[in-house]
Design a protein around this nucleic acid. Structure first.
Lengths: 147, 147
DNA sequence: TGAGCTGTAACTATTGATATTACAATTCAC
DNA sequence: GTGAATTGTAATATCAATAGTTACAGCTCA
C-alpha cells in the first residue's frame, strides 16, 4: 500500500502558495485547478495543514498563507500533518498472533525495534528536506521554462 | 496508509520455520495457528516468498524450508517479495496535475528526486537487517521465557 | 489408495482514498 | 445591509486493497 497522495498534494499546495501567493488569491478552487483534484479534498488537506499550524486559511474571504519561513517546515512536518499512517505506525502488524505459540507471543519483542529503526530512517530523511528546497527547485524549473 | 501486514507476517513465518522446522512440518495450517491469520492468506504469502526464491514449499506432502543462509536474506528481500508497494513506488502521486499551471506541469521534476531519496533511505535500512538478526532475537526471547 | 497438504478460484466484508453535491457560516466590497 | 465569493463540513458514492472464508482439483507419500 502506498503512502496517500495527500502528501504530494500538500507539497504541491505549498509550491503554489509560494509561486502565486503574491499575484493571486490562492483558494481551494485555484489549487484544485493546479492539482486536478477535487476542491473539497483540497480543503480537507488545507484543514489538516492549518491544524498543524503550517498555514492560515482566510475564512469567508478566502486565500491561504504560510505561517513560518519555508526552511523551518520539513517534509516530516507535512507528512505528519496529513496523517499518512495510522497511530504513527508505518507498518501494519497482524492483529492477534497466537499466545500459545512461543514465536507468536514474542513476535512483537522480536520485531518492533527493527520496524522502529526502518520507520526512523524514513522520518529522518523526510526531516532533512524542507519547503525551501521545494521553493528553490520550483523557481529553477519555472525559469528554465521561460528561456 | 500503512504497509501491508504481509510484511510482518512474512517475517513471522521465517521465525517459525527457523524455530520449528527441525521438530515439526511447517504447514500453512501450522503457520495460521501461530499468526492467527487465515491459512489461505498464509499460502498466498508463501507463494510470493517462493516466487522470490526465498523458500521452498513441498507440494503435496507439505512443509516449508528456507533456500539460503539467513544472513543472506534481508528485510528488503522480504519486503519486495510480498509486494508492499505498487510499481515499487512508496509514494502515491496525484494522477493528473494540470499542464496549464506552471507548477502543475513541473511538480514531478520538483518532487521526484526527493521522494526517491526518502524511499531509498527506507530501503537502505530494510537492507541492513537480515533474518539472521531475527533468528538471534527469537532465540534470545524464547530462552528468556524458559528461565 | 487414502490422508494430508498445496495452489488457486470465487465470493464476501471491511476499510481507506478520492470524488461529488450540497449548504450553512463567514467575510468583505459595494 | 446585501450579495458574491469562499470556507468548513456533512452526506453519499465509487473504487481499490486487505483480509477472511469456502471449496476443490491436483500432488505426494506412507
Amino acid at each position: 500500500m502506498q503512502i496517500s497522495s495527500r502528501f504530494t498534494l500538500a507539497v504541491h499546495i505549498f509550491a503554489c502558495i509560494d509561486t502565486f501567493g503574491n499575484e493571486y488569491k490562492v483558494t481551494s478552487d485555484f489549487l484544485a485547478g493546479s492539482t486536478n483534484v477535487n476542491p473539497v479534498i483540497i480543503r480537507k488537506i488545507l484543514g489538516q495543514l492549518k491544524g498543524a499550524g503550517l498555514i492560515e486559511v482566510a475564512r469567508g474571504t478566502g486565500g491561504t498563507t504560510v505561517t513560518k519561513p519555508l526552511d523551518e517546515i520539513t517534509f516530516l512536518d507535512v507528512y505528519n500533518a496529513v496523517e499518512c499512517v495510522e497511530n504513527g505506525e508505518l507498518f501494519h502488524f497482524h492483529e492477534n498472533p497466537s499466545t500459545n505459540c512461543p514465536v507468536g507471543r514474542n513476535i512483537h519483542y522480536i520485531l518492533d525495534d527493527k520496524l522502529y529503526r526502518v520507520q526512523s530512517a524514513l522520518e529522518k530523511e523526510l526531516a532533512s528536506i524542507t519547503l525551501a528546497d521545494i521553493k528553490q527547485d520550483t523557481e529553477k524549473y519555472l525559469s528554465e521554462e521561460n528561456r
